[in-house]
Design a protein around this nucleic acid. Sequence first.
DNA 1: GTTGAGCGTT
Length: 135
Amino acid sequence: MNKSLAFVATTISTKFHFPPSLCRSYSSPSSLPSSNKLFVGGLSWSVDENSLKDAFSSFGDVTEVRIVYDKDSGRSRGFGFVIFSNEDDAKSAKDAMDGKALLGRPLRINFALEKARGVPVVVPRLSDIGHLNRH
DNA sequence: GTTGAGCGTT
């Protein structure tokens, strides 16, 4: 009887092709949802926003380039962001530049995590805590 | 003169 169950399972798995909507683990391999904003890591310490833009502007319109510098030391933290006006340009730039070297260091590119902009931040209120002491 | 995975100073 186990054999017949195995037969059924095999039959099902070979006969059915599940629609992509049910196979979401394959929809974005090794990354995040597509966007026009790229996280660029692995930068050489000496790369500035200009040379980074030059490296990416051939793939489309670069809306913004931002390299993250340390607040106190002022030196590059070795990563930054490149924003394209077009989402497809960002994707092709990522595919083309990921792993490629810039100024001697291989780039690590990914779609950027969305830094919560426009999302209201709810903070606890002291006036509400006061109600806890009330009967 | 330094470091080497990661997700940002207005």
